[in-house]
């Protein structure tokens, strides 16, 4: 069996994150994770675990340790500055009556 880069413990299969695409053209959504010895088995385990109820038409599996995530400490500098900048949302602006009518 191939050694996988994201091996955690010796006797435990590595962890993979599973994403599925609900429909053509839709963005992939995170479904959960599975353990598997390698990529092909990860795909099959993902199919058996997350695609039995018509959830999607495509699957991605990604070694969990290949995902770079922000940390709780990043919360301030990453996300707080957006708090008081309501004008970044389109809803901030009122739509002119003329534009509304055209709908």
């Amino acid at each position: 069996m191939k050694e996988s880069a994201n091996g955690t413990k010796q006797n435990e299969w590595p962890l993979w994150e599973v994403f599925y695409q609900p429909n053509n053209g839709k963005p992939f959504e995170h479904a959960g994770s599975v353990h598997a010895p390698d990529a092909e088995m990860a795909l099959q385990n993902a199919r058996d675990t997350y695609s039995r109820r018509n959830e999607g038409i495509n699957l991605w599996v990604v070694p969990s340790d290949q995902i770079v995530a922000s940390t709780p400490e990043d919360q301030g500098p990453f996300f707080d500055p957006a708090n008081d900048k309501a004008y970044r949302h389109p809803q901030f602006y009122s739509v002119p009556r003329a534009a509304k009518k055209r709908k």
Partner: peptide, 11 residues
């Protein structure tokens, strides 16, 4: 042997 294979065989 693992939860995932348990599911696969049950499937």
């Amino acid at each position: 042997p693992e939860l995932e294979e348990d599911l696969a065989l049950a499937n």
